[in-house]
């Protein structure tokens, strides 16, 4: 994830990686040797030190720079200034993330349902899963080039649509604008949603449907009273995950155009600018980014745990 969309073939599906799905939880393979004062944990230090130096220290560095006043004191001024001075970037980022996450949840959810319930071609489910694995990790330069060739100014679909009398670019469409980025992001959002919801849809037991039918419920009552309530935590969780995925996506947008006005691209822009002026702006923006991510991801993890009650 990005989370997704970071590297060309970004993170390999965030899916269970985040919640420690079924693979992670298992009993700690009953291994501890009879209690002896053990120094074995010292062996973990190199790894922890590595993460500390190359992940935590840089993050603290960002937060410190974001919260430091020019005179060396502590201030939230930089953070609030970043919000006001980069208002458009924040609005664009939030809007793009909200809309692309919403599209991802709806289409991804439906697609997962279609794949989970289809029985006729046996390979269909495998095909959808495999394609989702590829799509969810799509991003960066390759994805940008794909969409240039599709709906860029001289893209094939642009030409095709114009042939039928509608001029996309004449009507203000642009890959670098929010509508364009939403189109592109949808490409990895839908597959990611499929990957996170398939297990939840599999968790809907046939017996519930039968029970509802035996008690005289229509399919509609089943969905309204049983199906959707059970799926709700998964769907909201999926939405949060997708939001975070889009919000943090840098590579794709940057490869489309360096002028794209969204928060991650602004961070990179100010980082590359004259650093000597000591501006705290990129660091304040990055701190906001971490805050957004932490909220969305924490929400995702909790909802996911909640949803797993039904997946046993």
């Amino acid at each position: 994830m990005g989370i997704g969309a970071g590297p060309l073939l970004g993170p390999y599906a965030t899916v269970d990686v985040l919640t420690g799905g079924p693979a992670a939880g298992g009993a700690p393979s009953a291994v501890s040797t009879p209690e002896r004062r053990s120094w074995a944990w010292l062996g973990l230090l190199p790894f922890l030190a590595f993460v500390g130096i190359f992940l935590l220290l840089p993050t603290f560095g960002v937060i410190r720079k974001a919260l430091r006043a020019p005179d060396g004191g502590f201030t939230f001024r930089g953070m609030t200034d970043a919000l006001t001075s980069q208002k458009v970037a924040f609005i664009n980022s939030v809007w793009i993330s909200l809309v692309s996450a919403a599209i991802g949840v709806v289409l991804g959810g439906l697609l997962a349902y279609a794949a989970a319930t289809a029985r006729r071609p046996k390979w269909l489910r495998t095909l959808v899963t495999a394609f989702s694995g590829v799509g969810a990790n799509m991003g960066g330069v390759i994805l940008a080039f794909m969409f240039f060739s599709l709906v860029g100014r001289t893209g094939l679909a642009t030409k095709f649509i114009k042939y039928f009398g509608y001029d996309l670019y004449g009507h203000g469409f642009d890959l670098a604008k929010p509508a364009g980025l939403i189109t592109v992001y949808t490409y990895f959002q839908i597959p990611l949603m499929v990957l996170v919801t398939l297990p939840a849809i599999d968790g809907l037991k046939t017996s519930w449907r039968e029970a509802a039918a035996n008690l005289g419920g229509t399919p509609w009552t089943y969905w309204r009273r049983v199906g959707l309530p059970v799926l709700t935590p998964s769907l909201i969780g999926g939405f949060l995950l997708l939001f975070a995925n889009a919000f943090s996506a840098f590579a794709t947008a940057r490869a489309i155009n360096q002028g794209v006005n969204i928060v991650p691209v602004r961070i990179s822009f100010y980082l590359q600018g004259d650093v000597a002026n000591g501006g705290s702006l990129p660091f304040a923006l990055a701190t906001w980014m971490v805050v957004f991510m932490a909220v969305a991801m924490t929400g995702y993890v909790f909802l996911r745990r909640w949803a797993e009650r039904w997946m046993r």
């Binding site: 994830m1 990005g2 989370i3 970071g6 590297p7 993170p11 965030t14 990686v17 985040l18 420690g20 992670a24 973990l44 790894f47 922890l48 993460v51 992940l55 935590l56 220290l57 840089p58 993050t59 603290f60 560095g61 960002v62 410190r64 720079k65 975070a244 943090s248 840098f250 590579a251 991650p264 961070i267 990179s268 980082l271 650093v275 990129p282 660091f283 923006l285 990055a286 980014m289 971490v290 991510m293 932490a294 991801m297």
Partner: peptide, 24 residues
Amino acid sequence: IEFTTLLPFMIPPIALVAGVAAFF
């Protein structure tokens, strides 16, 4: 350890690179 390996999701690449600039 498991929690540690999930941190890169909370701190996406663009925030990490800001950290690189801030710290290194």
